[in-house]
Computed example of a mutant assay.
Amino acid sequence: MRLRNNPEALDHLKDHGDIVYINPEGMKGKWHSCFESQDAPLYIEIGMGKGDFILENARRYPDINFIGMEKFTTVLDKALKKALKEGMPKNLIFLKDDAVRLPELFENGELDRIYLNFSDPWPKSRHAKRRLTYPSFLELYKNALKKQGEMIFKTDNRNLFEYSLVTFANNGFVFEDVCLDLHHQEGYEDNIQTEYERKFSKNGPIYRLAVRVKGEENG
């Protein structure tokens, strides 16, 4: 369920411009400069929601720099408030923007990993182009990722999962891992759950894909 719009959210985000970038210009190729450790790998979650996943990642992996990207103002403000209350990790910043603007936001090869967690499945065929694993989006990710860069995709929607298997395979990615029941399969004990994942995993399996950009080393 989408949050009711908070008219004060944008002003609150602007008050924290040191950690929240709102539709930024001139940052392309310069995101590493936002962090103390400028040589660390750079990971981004696209559509981070209320931020549980990216916050826990930043805490657990201090030697990696993280960007939490969310296009909805009120949702991002919820994540910001949570981070400020719990303590904002120094290796995390927030970005208010849309995935369609990745070419304007990131230099080719600037990212090491992209997370897509529980994206809107857009189940109707006429809306397929809006799915974040549609081929046109995959091209944006490939350009933003380094050679051999990685994507981690999680969903509880079987149809979106099967659709994404095909689009990743046909658009320049190779599979590193395919999991059909994340919460009941050995080897995934370090899985960090999203708020949505904790709430709805009881309703059925969680599917997970790990893929890399196809390159010389993996054909």
Rank of each mutant, 00 (worst) to 15 (best):
M1D: 10
R2F: 03
R2K: 08
L3M: 11
R4C: 00
L10I: 07
L10G: 05
K14E: 15
K14W: 01
H16V: 09
H16E: 13
N23T: 08
E25Q: 13
G29L: 03
G29H: 10
K30S: 10
S33W: 00
C34E: 15
F35M: 04
E36P: 04
S37F: 10
Q38A: 11
Q38M: 10
D39F: 00
A40K: 08
P41R: 06
L42P: 03
L42T: 13
I44E: 04
E45T: 09
G49A: 08
D52Y: 01
A58F: 05
R59E: 14
Y61E: 12
N65Y: 07
F66D: 02
I67A: 11
G68Y: 03
E70H: 05
K71L: 08
F72C: 00
T74G: 06
V75K: 03
L76E: 05
K78E: 13
A79T: 02
E86G: 01
G87Q: 14
K90C: 00
N91E: 14
L92W: 03
I93V: 15
L95Q: 12
L95I: 10
V100M: 09
L102F: 08
E104Q: 14
N108I: 01
L111Q: 06
I114W: 06
I114N: 02
F118K: 03
S119L: 09
P121R: 06
R131K: 06
T133C: 08
T133F: 02
S136H: 14
E139P: 03
E139F: 05
L140V: 03
K142R: 15
N143L: 09
N143H: 10
A144R: 05
K146A: 12
K147H: 09
G149D: 08
T155M: 02
T155E: 02
E162I: 09
E162D: 15
S164E: 01
S164D: 01
F168T: 07
A169S: 14
A169Q: 12
N170F: 05
V178S: 05
C179F: 10
L180A: 04
E186M: 13
G187F: 14
G187L: 12
R198Y: 07
K199V: 13
K202R: 15
Y207N: 06
R212V: 09
V213S: 02
G215E: 00
E217C: 09
